[in-house]
C-alpha cells in the first residue's frame, strides 16, 4: 500500500528521539523524484507540520538533516541532563569544561553550551574556577562531603545545610532497629528491608534516615543495596538513597549481624 502525507507525522513520532532524516522522508514520501530533491508538496507539508508545532527541525547532524516530533529529540534539557549525569559520575574528581565538552556526544553536543548554562543555573552542578579554567562539581557530591542535605527536586539546598542538628542527633540505629526487625519478621525473616517501608514505619524525615543509613554504611554496621528491577514503584525509587557515581538509587538496607 502506498504511503501518503498522512503517514508522515506518525512516522516522525515513531522515530522518537532518534528523529527521521530528510533523506529517509524524501525516499518514503517524496514520490518518484525522491532521490534527487524534495518535492514542493513535501516541503510544504513539513513546513505546515512545523508551523503547527507537531514537529521541529531540521537539525543538522553530520550530513543528515533530522526532523523530530514535538517534545522529542535533543534539547537544552536533554543536554543538561547528560551533563549533570557526567558530572555526578565523576564524583570528587573535578571535570573541566573542555573535558566535559568532549564527553557530551551525539545530538546533545549541539546544545552543550546552553545545556551547561542550564545545568549550572538550575543548581544541579556548581561551576568552580581555577585561574582561567572552569571545573564542575555535582551538588549531591558536595552535599555528601559537606554533610548538608541534598536539595529536593526543584528546591535549592540551603548553603548551611539547613539540617536540624538537634533532630539529626536524635535518630540513631537503635531507634531504627525495632521497625527494621518488625518489617524483617513480616517478610519472613528476609534481611533486606525496603528503605521506603522503613521511612513509613518511622514516620520521620527521609533526609534524616538517609543520613543515618549513610553514616552506618560507612561504619560497616549496615549495607545498602540498589534496585534489582528496572520498573520499581516510583515511591520506592524516590525513597532510595542516591550516591554519586551510582546511577540507580539504593532502595533496601540490611543491618549486619542482626539475628
Amino acid at each position: 500500500m502506498a504511503v501518503t502525507f498522512d503517514d508522515l507525522l506518525p512516522a516522525i513520532v515513531k522515530a522518537g528521539d532518534a528523529g527521521l532524516s530528510l533523506a529517509k522522508i524524501r525516499t518514503t514520501f517524496g514520490g518518484k523524484a525522491a532521490a534527487k530533491k524534495v518535492t514542493p508538496e513535501l516541503r510544504e507539508k513539513l513546513a505546515t507540520l512545523a508551523h503547527e508545532g507537531a514537529i521541529w527541525g531540521p537539525l543538522k547532524q553530520g550530513v543528515a538533516q533530522l526532523y523530530f516530533a514535538r517534545g522529542r529529540g535533543p534539547s537544552i534539557e536533554t543536554a543538561s541532563r547528560a551533563i549533570v549525569t557526567l558530572v555526578a559520575s565523576s564524583g570528587v574528581k573535578l571535570i573541566s569544561k573542555p573535558g566535559l565538552g568532549k564527553k557530551v556526544t551525539g545530538m546533545n553536543k549541539k546544545f552543550f553550551p546552553d545545556g551547561l548554562k542550564h545545568a549550572v543555573s538550575s543548581q544541579a552542578i556548581v561551576e568552580l574556577t581555577c585561574g582561567s579554567s572552569k571545573y564542575y562539581l555535582h551538588r549531591d557530591v558536595a552535599a555528601e562531603y559537606f554533610g548538608f542535605e541534598p536539595a529536593e527536586q526543584g528546591r535549592i539546598a540551603p548553603a548551611s545545610g539547613g539540617r536540624d542538628v538537634t533532630a539529626a542527633a536524635s535518630l540513631t540505629l537503635d531507634d531504627v532497629l525495632p521497625a527494621y526487625r518488625r518489617l524483617k519478621a513480616e517478610q519472613g525473616g528476609f534481611s533486606a528491608v525496603k528503605i521506603y517501608d522503613l521511612m513509613k514505619a518511622l514516620n520521620g524525615s527521609k533526609e534524616e534516615l538517609h543520613r543515618l543509613l549513610i553514616d552506618e554504611t560507612k561504619a560497616g554496621r549496615v549495607t545498602i543495596h540498589p534496585t534489582t528491577t528496572v520498573d520499581l514503584p516510583k515511591e520506592e525509587m524516590e525513597a532510595g538513597i542516591r550516591l554519586a557515581g551510582f546511577p540507580e538509587p539504593f532502595v533496601t538496607v540490611v543491618v549486619k549481624n542482626d539475628p
Binding site: 564524583g91 549513610i214 560497616g220 549495607t223
Partner: peptide, 13 residues
C-alpha cells in the same frame, strides 16, 4: 573513591 561511602558492593556493580 568507589568505596568512599560503601563498605561493600555487589560484585557485578
Amino acid at each position: 573513591d568507589l568505596f568512599s561511602t560503601l563498605v561493600e558492593l555487589g560484585v557485578r556493580a
